Computed example of a mutant assay.
Amino acid sequence: MPSMVSPRPLLTAATTVVALITLAPVSAAASPHGYRVVDLGTLSGGDGAATAMNDRGDIVGWSTVAGGARHAVLWRHGVITDLGVLPGDSDSAAVDVNEFGDVAITSFGSDYVTRAVLWRDGQLHDLGTLGGENSVAIGVNDRRQVLGTSEPVGDMPHRFLWRSGVFTDLGREYFYESTTDFNNAGDVVGGFNVPPQDYPCTCVGGRLRDGVLTQIGSEALGINNRGQVVGAANGRAYRWQNGTLTDLGTLGGDWSRATAINDRGDVVGQSSTTAAWHPFLWRNGVMTDLTTRGLVATDWIEDINIRGQLVGARGNRPVLFR
Rank of each mutant, 00 (worst) to 15 (best):
A276S: 15
F160I: 01
R120P: 10
V136C: 13
D39Y: 11
T129D: 03
I59M: 08
T149D: 08
A116R: 00
A69D: 15
S6R: 15
L248E: 02
R226S: 05
Q309D: 12
F192C: 11
I138F: 13
T250Q: 02
N134Y: 04
L221S: 07
G205P: 03
D263R: 04
T288V: 06
A260D: 08
T51E: 14
T168G: 01
A13F: 11
M287N: 08
P157Q: 06
L281A: 07
D102Y: 02
T202K: 03
G84F: 10
L10S: 15
D169R: 06
R239L: 12
G78D: 00
D91P: 02
D247T: 07
I223W: 03
D89E: 15
A13Y: 08
V97T: 14
E133S: 13
Q215V: 14
W300R: 14
G128D: 08
N141S: 08
N98C: 06
S150G: 13
L221C: 05
Y35A: 02
A313L: 03
I21D: 03
G211F: 09
D82L: 07
D39K: 01
V18W: 05
A29N: 03
D55G: 07
T16E: 14
D126L: 10
S31H: 04
V113Y: 06
I105D: 10
S92W: 04
R239K: 12
T298D: 11
N141G: 11
V296Y: 05
L11D: 09
L118I: 01
G217M: 06
T51Q: 14
P279F: 00
R120S: 15
D121G: 08
R257H: 12
G249L: 08
D142W: 04
S218H: 07
P318I: 13
R115P: 00
R172M: 07
A24Y: 04
D102G: 02
G67D: 11
Y176F: 11
R317Y: 10
D39R: 11
A13K: 13
D181M: 09
S256H: 09
N262P: 08
L161M: 12
A313I: 01
T129E: 04
R8W: 13
L118H: 03
D263I: 02
L43E: 08
N54F: 12
V146P: 09
S63Q: 04
G191L: 09
L147M: 12
